[in-house]
Design a protein around this nucleic acid. Structure first.
Lengths: 192, 192
DNA sequence: GGAAAAACATAACAACTGTTGTGATAAGCT
DNA sequence: AGCTTATCACAACAGTTGTTATGTTTTTCC
Protein backbone atom coordinates (compact mmCIF):
# COMPACT_ATOMS: atom_id res chain seq x y z
CA UNK A 1 0.00 0.00 0.00
CA UNK A 2 2.76 2.42 0.90
CA UNK A 3 4.39 1.53 -2.39
CA UNK A 4 1.38 2.70 -4.34
CA UNK A 5 1.06 5.89 -2.32
CA UNK A 6 4.62 6.85 -3.09
CA UNK A 7 4.04 6.25 -6.79
CA UNK A 8 1.10 8.61 -6.54
CA UNK A 9 3.28 11.25 -4.94
CA UNK A 10 5.74 11.03 -7.80
CA UNK A 11 2.90 11.16 -10.30
CA UNK A 12 1.37 14.17 -8.57
CA UNK A 13 4.71 15.94 -8.68
CA UNK A 14 4.84 15.20 -12.38
CA UNK A 15 1.35 16.67 -12.78
CA UNK A 16 2.38 19.88 -11.06
CA UNK A 17 5.42 20.27 -13.31
CA UNK A 18 3.33 19.55 -16.41
CA UNK A 19 0.73 22.15 -15.49
CA UNK A 20 3.30 24.77 -14.54
CA UNK A 21 6.00 24.23 -17.18
CA UNK A 22 4.65 21.86 -19.82
CA UNK A 23 4.91 18.16 -20.52
CA UNK A 24 8.19 18.32 -22.42
CA UNK A 25 9.83 20.11 -19.49
CA UNK A 26 8.62 17.49 -17.04
CA UNK A 27 11.97 15.71 -16.98
CA UNK A 28 13.05 13.17 -14.41
CA UNK A 29 15.18 15.81 -12.75
CA UNK A 30 12.42 18.42 -12.74
CA UNK A 31 9.97 15.96 -11.23
CA UNK A 32 12.47 14.92 -8.57
CA UNK A 33 13.14 18.57 -7.75
CA UNK A 34 9.39 19.16 -7.42
CA UNK A 35 9.25 16.27 -4.96
CA UNK A 36 12.32 17.70 -3.21
CA UNK A 37 14.43 14.63 -3.72
CA UNK A 38 16.71 13.13 -6.34
CA UNK A 39 16.06 11.15 -9.48
CA UNK A 40 16.84 8.01 -7.50
CA UNK A 41 13.33 8.11 -6.08
CA UNK A 42 11.71 8.46 -9.47
CA UNK A 43 13.66 5.65 -11.06
CA UNK A 44 13.05 3.46 -8.04
CA UNK A 45 9.29 3.58 -8.38
CA UNK A 46 9.12 3.68 -12.16
CA UNK A 47 11.34 1.46 -14.27
CA UNK A 48 11.25 3.90 -17.14
CA UNK A 49 9.90 7.31 -17.99
CA UNK A 50 7.37 5.74 -20.31
CA UNK A 51 5.94 3.86 -17.34
CA UNK A 52 5.70 7.09 -15.36
CA UNK A 53 4.04 8.92 -18.25
CA UNK A 54 1.52 6.11 -18.64
CA UNK A 55 0.78 6.05 -14.93
CA UNK A 56 0.28 9.82 -14.85
CA UNK A 57 -2.03 9.56 -17.85
CA UNK A 58 -4.11 6.88 -16.15
CA UNK A 59 -4.52 9.23 -13.21
CA UNK A 60 -6.54 11.50 -15.48
CA UNK A 61 -9.17 8.80 -15.91
CA UNK A 62 -8.97 7.79 -12.25
CA UNK A 63 -9.61 11.32 -11.05
CA UNK A 64 -12.37 11.94 -13.57
CA UNK A 65 -14.20 8.80 -12.57
CA UNK A 66 -13.82 9.61 -8.89
CA UNK A 67 -15.23 13.11 -9.44
CA UNK A 68 -18.06 11.67 -11.49
CA UNK A 69 -18.78 9.23 -8.69
CA UNK A 70 -19.05 11.86 -5.97
CA UNK A 71 -21.08 14.21 -8.15
CA UNK A 72 -23.63 11.58 -9.04
CA UNK A 73 -23.82 10.08 -5.55
CA UNK A 74 -26.84 12.05 -4.38
CA UNK A 75 -28.46 13.17 -7.61
CA UNK A 76 -31.34 11.73 -9.60
CA UNK A 77 -32.94 12.13 -12.99
CA UNK A 78 -31.80 14.79 -15.42
CA UNK A 79 -29.66 16.47 -12.78
CA UNK A 80 -27.64 13.31 -12.59
CA UNK A 81 -26.82 13.49 -16.29
CA UNK A 82 -25.81 17.11 -15.93
CA UNK A 83 -23.63 16.18 -12.99
CA UNK A 84 -21.83 13.54 -15.02
CA UNK A 85 -21.05 16.02 -17.76
CA UNK A 86 -20.01 18.65 -15.22
CA UNK A 87 -17.16 16.36 -14.20
CA UNK A 88 -15.31 17.45 -17.35
CA UNK A 89 -15.70 21.16 -16.79
CA UNK A 90 -12.81 23.01 -15.13
CA UNK A 91 -15.00 24.62 -12.51
CA UNK A 92 -12.56 24.17 -9.65
CA UNK A 93 -8.79 23.94 -9.28
CA UNK A 94 -8.59 20.16 -9.43
CA UNK A 95 -10.70 19.88 -12.55
CA UNK A 96 -8.73 22.71 -14.15
CA UNK A 97 -5.54 20.80 -13.43
CA UNK A 98 -7.06 17.65 -14.89
CA UNK A 99 -8.03 19.48 -18.05
CA UNK A 100 -4.57 20.93 -18.57
CA UNK A 101 -2.81 17.63 -17.99
CA UNK A 102 -5.29 15.89 -20.26
CA UNK A 103 -4.72 18.39 -23.06
CA UNK A 104 -0.98 18.11 -22.64
CA UNK A 105 -1.15 14.32 -22.92
CA UNK A 106 -3.53 14.44 -25.84
CA UNK A 107 -1.16 16.67 -27.78
CA UNK A 108 1.68 14.36 -26.83
CA UNK A 109 -0.32 11.41 -28.17
CA UNK A 110 -0.43 12.87 -31.67
CA UNK A 111 1.85 10.67 -33.73
CA UNK A 112 1.85 7.96 -31.03
CA UNK A 113 -0.77 5.38 -31.80
CA UNK A 114 -0.33 3.46 -28.55
CA UNK A 115 -0.84 6.52 -26.38
CA UNK A 116 -3.78 7.67 -28.47
CA UNK A 117 -5.24 4.23 -27.87
CA UNK A 118 -5.10 4.88 -24.14
CA UNK A 119 -7.03 8.09 -24.65
CA UNK A 120 -9.59 6.28 -26.76
CA UNK A 121 -10.01 3.59 -24.13
CA UNK A 122 -10.51 6.17 -21.41
CA UNK A 123 -12.93 8.22 -23.50
CA UNK A 124 -14.77 5.05 -24.42
CA UNK A 125 -15.51 4.04 -20.85
CA UNK A 126 -16.69 7.52 -19.97
CA UNK A 127 -18.87 7.51 -23.07
CA UNK A 128 -20.34 4.19 -21.99
CA UNK A 129 -21.32 5.69 -18.65
CA UNK A 130 -23.21 8.49 -20.41
CA UNK A 131 -24.95 6.05 -22.71
CA UNK A 132 -26.09 3.89 -19.80
CA UNK A 133 -27.42 6.92 -17.97
CA UNK A 134 -29.33 8.03 -21.07
CA UNK A 135 -30.88 4.59 -21.41
CA UNK A 136 -31.85 4.55 -17.75
CA UNK A 137 -33.44 7.98 -18.08
CA UNK A 138 -35.38 6.79 -21.07
CA UNK A 139 -36.81 3.87 -19.12
CA UNK A 140 -37.98 6.19 -16.36
CA UNK A 141 -39.49 8.45 -19.04
CA UNK A 142 -37.35 11.40 -18.05
CA UNK A 143 -35.68 11.54 -21.44
CA UNK A 144 -37.58 11.41 -24.74
CA UNK A 145 -37.92 7.95 -26.23
CA UNK A 146 -37.04 9.06 -29.76
CA UNK A 147 -33.44 10.06 -29.12
CA UNK A 148 -30.61 7.62 -29.84
CA UNK A 149 -28.46 7.23 -26.71
CA UNK A 150 -25.19 6.52 -28.48
CA UNK A 151 -25.23 9.45 -30.87
CA UNK A 152 -26.71 11.72 -28.23
CA UNK A 153 -23.84 10.78 -25.95
CA UNK A 154 -21.46 11.87 -28.70
CA UNK A 155 -23.04 15.30 -28.89
CA UNK A 156 -23.14 15.75 -25.13
CA UNK A 157 -19.54 14.70 -24.70
CA UNK A 158 -18.44 16.83 -27.63
CA UNK A 159 -20.14 19.82 -26.08
CA UNK A 160 -18.65 19.16 -22.65
CA UNK A 161 -15.18 18.72 -24.08
CA UNK A 162 -15.60 21.76 -26.29
CA UNK A 163 -16.79 23.96 -23.45
CA UNK A 164 -13.87 22.77 -21.33
CA UNK A 165 -11.41 23.58 -24.11
CA UNK A 166 -12.93 27.01 -24.57
CA UNK A 167 -11.80 27.93 -21.09
CA UNK A 168 -8.26 27.49 -22.32
CA UNK A 169 -8.84 29.12 -25.69
CA UNK A 170 -10.65 32.20 -24.55
CA UNK A 171 -8.76 35.05 -22.98
CA UNK A 172 -11.55 35.86 -20.52
CA UNK A 173 -12.60 32.29 -20.01
CA UNK A 174 -16.19 31.24 -19.60
CA UNK A 175 -17.59 31.62 -16.13
CA UNK A 176 -18.68 28.56 -14.22
CA UNK A 177 -22.27 29.68 -14.71
CA UNK A 178 -21.87 30.01 -18.48
CA UNK A 179 -20.33 26.57 -18.70
CA UNK A 180 -23.16 25.00 -16.73
CA UNK A 181 -25.83 26.77 -18.75
CA UNK A 182 -24.44 25.48 -22.05
CA UNK A 183 -24.64 21.92 -20.78
CA UNK A 184 -28.01 22.30 -19.10
CA UNK A 185 -29.61 23.82 -22.19
CA UNK A 186 -28.51 20.85 -24.24
CA UNK A 187 -29.81 18.37 -21.70
CA UNK A 188 -33.07 20.30 -21.44
CA UNK A 189 -33.73 19.62 -25.12
CA UNK A 190 -33.63 15.90 -24.45
CA UNK A 191 -36.29 15.82 -21.77
CA UNK A 192 -39.74 14.37 -22.34
CA UNK B 1 8.49 35.74 -52.64
CA UNK B 2 10.74 32.75 -53.14
CA UNK B 3 11.99 33.27 -49.63
CA UNK B 4 8.52 32.89 -48.20
CA UNK B 5 7.80 29.82 -50.30
CA UNK B 6 10.84 28.06 -48.97
CA UNK B 7 9.86 28.85 -45.43
CA UNK B 8 6.52 27.26 -46.18
CA UNK B 9 8.23 24.13 -47.47
CA UNK B 10 10.19 23.84 -44.24
CA UNK B 11 7.04 24.44 -42.22
CA UNK B 12 5.14 21.83 -44.22
CA UNK B 13 7.91 19.32 -43.64
CA UNK B 14 7.63 20.10 -39.94
CA UNK B 15 3.88 19.50 -40.12
CA UNK B 16 4.39 16.11 -41.70
CA UNK B 17 6.85 15.05 -39.01
CA UNK B 18 4.53 16.30 -36.27
CA UNK B 19 1.55 14.36 -37.62
CA UNK B 20 3.56 11.21 -38.21
CA UNK B 21 5.87 11.13 -35.18
CA UNK B 22 4.73 13.81 -32.74
CA UNK B 23 5.74 17.36 -31.93
CA UNK B 24 8.54 16.47 -29.54
CA UNK B 25 10.13 14.29 -32.20
CA UNK B 26 10.00 17.08 -34.76
CA UNK B 27 13.64 18.01 -34.25
CA UNK B 28 15.69 20.18 -36.59
CA UNK B 29 17.36 17.07 -37.96
CA UNK B 30 14.11 15.19 -38.44
CA UNK B 31 12.55 18.12 -40.27
CA UNK B 32 15.61 18.48 -42.49
CA UNK B 33 15.53 14.77 -43.25
CA UNK B 34 11.86 15.06 -44.18
CA UNK B 35 12.78 17.85 -46.57
CA UNK B 36 15.66 15.72 -47.82
CA UNK B 37 18.33 18.22 -46.97
CA UNK B 38 20.47 19.20 -43.99
CA UNK B 39 19.82 21.32 -40.95
CA UNK B 40 21.63 24.14 -42.74
CA UNK B 41 18.44 24.84 -44.69
CA UNK B 42 16.26 24.95 -41.60
CA UNK B 43 18.55 27.26 -39.68
CA UNK B 44 18.96 29.48 -42.73
CA UNK B 45 15.25 30.24 -43.00
CA UNK B 46 14.48 30.27 -39.30
CA UNK B 47 16.79 31.95 -36.83
CA UNK B 48 15.68 29.66 -34.04
CA UNK B 49 13.46 26.69 -33.48
CA UNK B 50 11.05 28.85 -31.54
CA UNK B 51 10.56 30.95 -34.66
CA UNK B 52 9.89 27.82 -36.71
CA UNK B 53 7.42 26.50 -34.17
CA UNK B 54 5.60 29.83 -34.12
CA UNK B 55 5.48 29.97 -37.91
CA UNK B 56 4.14 26.44 -38.12
CA UNK B 57 1.52 27.29 -35.51
CA UNK B 58 0.41 30.34 -37.46
CA UNK B 59 -0.08 28.11 -40.47
CA UNK B 60 -2.91 26.42 -38.58
CA UNK B 61 -4.85 29.67 -38.52
CA UNK B 62 -3.88 30.53 -42.10
CA UNK B 63 -5.13 27.23 -43.42
CA UNK B 64 -8.30 27.33 -41.35
CA UNK B 65 -9.18 30.79 -42.57
CA UNK B 66 -8.45 29.84 -46.17
CA UNK B 67 -10.70 26.80 -45.89
CA UNK B 68 -13.39 28.90 -44.28
CA UNK B 69 -13.10 31.38 -47.11
CA UNK B 70 -13.53 28.85 -49.87
CA UNK B 71 -16.37 27.08 -48.08
CA UNK B 72 -18.35 30.25 -47.53
CA UNK B 73 -17.66 31.67 -50.98
CA UNK B 74 -20.83 30.45 -52.64
CA UNK B 75 -23.14 29.80 -49.71
CA UNK B 76 -25.87 31.91 -48.16
CA UNK B 77 -28.04 31.98 -45.09
CA UNK B 78 -27.94 29.18 -42.56
CA UNK B 79 -25.88 26.97 -44.85
CA UNK B 80 -23.15 29.58 -44.68
CA UNK B 81 -22.99 29.29 -40.91
CA UNK B 82 -22.81 25.53 -41.16
CA UNK B 83 -20.04 25.85 -43.74
CA UNK B 84 -18.00 28.05 -41.40
CA UNK B 85 -18.25 25.50 -38.62
CA UNK B 86 -17.48 22.66 -41.00
CA UNK B 87 -14.05 24.18 -41.54
CA UNK B 88 -13.03 22.76 -38.17
CA UNK B 89 -14.19 19.23 -38.86
CA UNK B 90 -11.59 16.71 -40.07
CA UNK B 91 -13.67 15.61 -43.04
CA UNK B 92 -10.77 15.41 -45.49
CA UNK B 93 -7.06 14.74 -45.27
CA UNK B 94 -5.99 18.37 -45.02
CA UNK B 95 -8.42 19.20 -42.26
CA UNK B 96 -7.46 16.04 -40.42
CA UNK B 97 -3.83 17.12 -40.60
CA UNK B 98 -4.77 20.56 -39.36
CA UNK B 99 -6.61 19.06 -36.40
CA UNK B 100 -3.71 16.85 -35.39
CA UNK B 101 -1.17 19.65 -35.63
CA UNK B 102 -3.49 21.97 -33.75
CA UNK B 103 -3.97 19.45 -30.95
CA UNK B 104 -0.24 18.84 -30.76
CA UNK B 105 0.44 22.56 -30.44
CA UNK B 106 -2.33 23.06 -27.92
CA UNK B 107 -0.88 20.37 -25.70
CA UNK B 108 2.54 21.93 -26.14
CA UNK B 109 1.11 25.29 -25.08
CA UNK B 110 0.11 23.98 -21.65
CA UNK B 111 2.49 25.62 -19.23
CA UNK B 112 3.55 28.20 -21.84
CA UNK B 113 1.52 31.34 -21.44
CA UNK B 114 2.89 33.03 -24.56
CA UNK B 115 2.04 30.14 -26.83
CA UNK B 116 -1.39 29.76 -25.24
CA UNK B 117 -1.88 33.44 -26.00
CA UNK B 118 -1.33 32.69 -29.67
CA UNK B 119 -4.00 30.03 -29.52
CA UNK B 120 -6.36 32.43 -27.80
CA UNK B 121 -5.73 35.09 -30.40
CA UNK B 122 -6.40 32.65 -33.22
CA UNK B 123 -9.53 31.26 -31.57
CA UNK B 124 -10.68 34.80 -30.87
CA UNK B 125 -10.62 35.88 -34.50
CA UNK B 126 -12.44 32.75 -35.61
CA UNK B 127 -14.99 33.34 -32.88
CA UNK B 128 -15.46 36.89 -34.10
CA UNK B 129 -16.25 35.61 -37.57
CA UNK B 130 -18.98 33.37 -36.18
CA UNK B 131 -20.44 36.19 -34.13
CA UNK B 132 -20.58 38.51 -37.13
CA UNK B 133 -22.28 35.83 -39.20
CA UNK B 134 -24.84 35.27 -36.47
CA UNK B 135 -25.57 38.97 -36.29
CA UNK B 136 -25.95 39.18 -40.07
CA UNK B 137 -28.32 36.22 -40.04
CA UNK B 138 -30.35 37.88 -37.34
CA UNK B 139 -30.76 41.02 -39.44
CA UNK B 140 -32.01 38.99 -42.38
CA UNK B 141 -34.38 37.21 -39.99
CA UNK B 142 -32.88 33.80 -40.71
CA UNK B 143 -31.82 33.34 -37.10
CA UNK B 144 -34.11 33.96 -34.15
CA UNK B 145 -33.85 37.43 -32.66
CA UNK B 146 -33.82 36.23 -29.06
CA UNK B 147 -30.51 34.40 -29.17
CA UNK B 148 -27.34 36.12 -27.98
CA UNK B 149 -24.69 35.93 -30.74
CA UNK B 150 -21.65 35.90 -28.47
CA UNK B 151 -22.77 33.11 -26.18
CA UNK B 152 -24.30 31.18 -29.07
CA UNK B 153 -20.98 31.38 -30.87
CA UNK B 154 -19.38 29.83 -27.80
CA UNK B 155 -21.73 26.87 -27.91
CA UNK B 156 -21.34 26.38 -31.67
CA UNK B 157 -17.56 26.55 -31.50
CA UNK B 158 -17.48 24.28 -28.48
CA UNK B 159 -19.58 21.74 -30.35
CA UNK B 160 -17.45 21.96 -33.49
CA UNK B 161 -14.24 21.61 -31.51
CA UNK B 162 -15.70 18.79 -29.46
CA UNK B 163 -16.91 16.88 -32.50
CA UNK B 164 -13.51 17.31 -34.13
CA UNK B 165 -11.79 16.00 -31.01
CA UNK B 166 -14.11 13.04 -30.86
CA UNK B 167 -12.72 11.80 -34.15
CA UNK B 168 -9.39 11.43 -32.36
CA UNK B 169 -10.87 10.05 -29.16
CA UNK B 170 -13.17 7.46 -30.62
CA UNK B 171 -11.76 4.22 -31.96
CA UNK B 172 -14.23 4.04 -34.82
CA UNK B 173 -14.32 7.74 -35.40
CA UNK B 174 -17.45 9.59 -36.34
CA UNK B 175 -18.37 9.49 -39.99
CA UNK B 176 -18.41 12.69 -41.99
CA UNK B 177 -22.20 12.46 -42.07
CA UNK B 178 -22.45 12.11 -38.30
CA UNK B 179 -20.20 15.10 -37.79
CA UNK B 180 -22.24 17.24 -40.13
CA UNK B 181 -25.53 16.18 -38.56
CA UNK B 182 -24.40 17.15 -35.08
CA UNK B 183 -23.55 20.65 -36.29
CA UNK B 184 -26.64 21.05 -38.48
CA UNK B 185 -28.98 20.00 -35.70
CA UNK B 186 -27.58 22.63 -33.44
CA UNK B 187 -27.82 25.33 -36.10
CA UNK B 188 -31.37 24.21 -36.89
CA UNK B 189 -32.41 25.08 -33.36
CA UNK B 190 -31.34 28.68 -33.91
CA UNK B 191 -33.47 29.34 -36.97
CA UNK B 192 -36.54 31.57 -36.90
C1' DG C 1 19.74 -5.98 17.94
C1' DG C 2 21.14 -7.61 13.75
C1' DA C 3 20.20 -9.23 9.10
C1' DA C 4 17.45 -8.39 4.91
C1' DA C 5 15.23 -5.37 2.08
C1' DA C 6 13.33 -1.24 0.74
C1' DA C 7 14.24 3.67 -0.01
C1' DC C 8 17.02 7.10 -1.53
C1' DA C 9 21.54 9.74 -3.08
C1' DT C 10 25.10 10.39 -6.33
C1' DA C 11 27.66 10.20 -10.28
C1' DA C 12 28.75 8.86 -14.70
C1' DC C 13 27.08 7.00 -19.39
C1' DA C 14 25.93 7.57 -24.23
C1' DA C 15 22.60 9.62 -27.06
C1' DC C 16 20.37 13.49 -28.58
C1' DT C 17 19.15 18.49 -28.62
C1' DG C 18 19.45 23.50 -30.69
C1' DT C 19 22.85 26.50 -32.04
C1' DT C 20 26.93 28.34 -34.29
C1' DG C 21 30.60 28.90 -37.48
C1' DT C 22 33.08 27.80 -41.58
C1' DG C 23 33.12 26.53 -46.35
C1' DA C 24 31.34 25.12 -50.69
C1' DT C 25 28.12 25.90 -54.41
C1' DA C 26 24.65 28.14 -56.98
C1' DA C 27 21.93 32.35 -58.43
C1' DG C 28 21.38 37.08 -59.44
C1' DC C 29 22.92 41.28 -60.92
C1' DT C 30 25.59 45.05 -63.33
C1' DA D 1 32.48 37.80 -67.12
C1' DG D 2 33.01 38.97 -62.39
C1' DC D 3 31.32 40.24 -57.99
C1' DT D 4 27.92 39.71 -54.59
C1' DT D 5 24.73 37.44 -52.14
C1' DA D 6 21.60 33.70 -51.18
C1' DT D 7 21.45 28.93 -50.45
C1' DC D 8 22.93 24.91 -48.53
C1' DA D 9 26.33 21.12 -46.48
C1' DC D 10 29.03 19.83 -42.74
C1' DA D 11 31.10 19.55 -38.37
C1' DA D 12 31.76 20.69 -33.81
C1' DC D 13 29.84 23.01 -29.52
C1' DA D 14 27.83 22.87 -24.88
C1' DG D 15 23.79 21.55 -22.66
C1' DT D 16 20.16 18.27 -21.53
C1' DT D 17 17.99 13.91 -21.70
C1' DG D 18 16.79 8.96 -19.81
C1' DT D 19 19.17 5.30 -18.01
C1' DT D 20 22.31 2.59 -15.24
C1' DA D 21 25.37 1.25 -11.65
C1' DT D 22 27.09 1.74 -7.18
C1' DG D 23 26.88 3.37 -2.79
C1' DT D 24 24.48 5.02 1.52
C1' DT D 25 20.77 5.43 4.65
C1' DT D 26 16.54 3.99 6.64
C1' DT D 27 12.95 0.77 7.57
C1' DT D 28 11.14 -3.84 8.40
C1' DC D 29 11.00 -8.11 10.49
C1' DC D 30 12.24 -12.05 13.42
Amino acid sequence: MKQHDRRLEVSNAAWRVIVREGLDRATMRAIARELDCTTGVVTHYFHSKEELILFALHQVTERLQRIMGTLTAQTEGAARLVAMLTAFLPVDREREEILRVWVAFLGYAVGREALMGEHQHSAGSLRQAIIQELEALQQTHVVRADIVPSSTANVLLALANGVALDTLLQAQSLSVKQQREAIEEQVQALLA
